[in-house]
C-alpha cells in the first residue's frame, strides 16, 4: 500500500524552477530516499509533503488524503533540516510542551530511555552536542507515535560515529513498522538505509529503484583509483584489459571495471614499463555516487 503518492509535482521560486514535475510513491514500511546534491529540489519536495510549502501544481496524497491534512498530521513525525526550540526552556520542558500538542503520546519516560535523554533533561537545546541534538529532535518527532517519518538531511554535520548510531535508530524504527522518507546527499547513507531511492538532479528524478539495482545497472562492479607522479595518457589506461572507462580528475586517475582483479593485475604490469610511480592505489565497489556521475556527468559535490 502506498503511504505517499506524488504526481507531477512542480514548484518555482521567482525565476527558478526548483521542482519540475516529480512523481513517486512511498510504500508502507519502507525507507525511501530522495538523493541528490544541494539545490536539487529534495528539501523543497519534502517541505511540500510536510505542508510547509504549497506546490504550484501536481498532486500529493498522504495516507490517501489530499496533501498534508490535519488528520494526516497526527500520523506524521518530522525532522527538519534545521530545528529551533525556545532557548529558555530545558529539554524536559520542551518534551512536555511538544507532548501537549498531541492527543496521544508515548510515555515520556519511555522516550527518554529510548533516546538516552536522561542526562540532558535539565540542559537547554543550544548546550547539546550534535549527536544529543539529533537524538532529541528525533524524540520530539516521534513523541506522538507517528506512522510516517520525514527526515530532511538528518545526519548533516554529524561525525561518522554519531551518524552510524543514528542509522541504527532509523533501522530499528523501520523494523517496528515505521515508513520513512529521507533526503540526503550522502550516498553511503542512502545505500545503507534506503530500500528504494529517487535520484534527483536539477528538480527532476533521473533514476529511481533499489540502490543495488541502480548500481548493478551501471555494468561496472568496481573502480580503481590512484595518483601518479607524472601525467598519464588516459587512452593508455583505457587499453588495459578489464578497464571499461578511464578518467582523470586533477591528480587522481579513476578506472571503471567489471573485472577488478584482471584490471588491477594489468595496471601493475603496465606500471613496470612506466617511468613514473603510481601511489594511493585503491579498489572501490561501485556506489550510488557512480550512478549519479554516470547519469548526470557531474559528481554530487559539483
Amino acid at each position: 500500500m502506498a503511504v505517499i503518492e506524488v504526481k507531477n509535482l512542480k514548484k518555482s521560486f521567482a525565476n527558478v524552477e526548483a521542482v519540475k514535475g516529480l512523481s513517486f510513491e512511498v510504500k508502507e514500511g519502507e525507507i525511501f530516499g530522495l538523493l541528490g546534491p544541494n539545490g536539487a529540489g529534495k528539501t523543497t519536495t519534502l517541505e511540500i509533503l510536510e505542508g510547509l510549502k504549497d506546490p504550484d501544481s501536481g498532486e500529493v496524497k498522504i495516507f490517501n488524503h489530499e496533501g498534508n491534512s490535519a488528520s494526516a498530521r497526527d500520523k506524521i513525525g518530522i525532522v527538519l533540516q534545521q530545528s529551533g526550540f525556545f532557548e529558555y526552556l530545558t529539554i524536559e520542558e520542551l518534551l512536555r510542551l511538544f507532548a501537549s500538542f498531541y492527543k496521544k503520546t508515548v510515555p515520556l519516560a519511555d522516550l527518554i530511555e529510548q533516546f538516552e535523554l536522561g542526562k540532558i533533561l535539565h540542559s537547554r537545546y543550544h548546550e547539546l552536542s550534535g549527536g544529543q541534538k539529533q537524538r532529541f529532535v528525533l524524540a520530539i518527532a516521534l513523541i506522538h507515535q507517528p506512522k510516517l517519518l520525514f527526515l530532511d538531511e538528518p545526519t548533516i554535520g554529524l561525525d561518522p560515529q554519531v551518524r552510524q548510531k543514528f542509522w541504527d535508530i532509523i533501522i530499528n524504527l523501520q523494523e517496528n513498522g515505521m515508513t520513512i522518507i529521507l533526503t540526503t546527499h550522502y550516498m553511503e547513507e542512502a545505500e545503507i538505509l534506503c530500500d528504494r531511492v529517487a535520484i534527483i538532479d536539477k528538480g527532476k528524478i533521473i533514476a529511481s529503484d533499489r540502490p543495488v539495482k541502480l548500481i548493478n545497472s551501471l555494468g561496472i562492479v568496481s573502480r580503481i583509483k590512484f595518483m601518479s607522479s607524472k601525467p598519464i595518457n588516459v587512452a593508455e589506461l583505457e587499453d588495459l584489459s578489464g578497464v571499461l572507462n578511464a578518467r582523470r580528475d586533477r591528480y587522481t586517475y579513476d578506472l571503471e571495471t567489471d573485472k577488478p582483479e584482471v584490471a588491477l593485475r594489468e595496471l601493475l604490469e603496465w606500471e613496470k614499463q612506466y617511468n613514473g610511480k603510481i601511489f594511493n592505489l585503491q579498489v572501490q565497489q561501485a556506489t550510488l555516487e557512480d550512478v549519479f556521475l554516470k547519469l548526470t556527468g557531474h559528481s554530487l559535490g559539483e
Partner: peptide, 12 residues
C-alpha cells in the same frame, strides 16, 4: 531560529 517552523509542523 526556525522555532516557528518546527511548531508549524505540529497540530498547534
Amino acid at each position: 531560529q526556525t522555532v516557528l517552523k518546527r511548531l508549524s509542523v505540529t497540530p498547534l
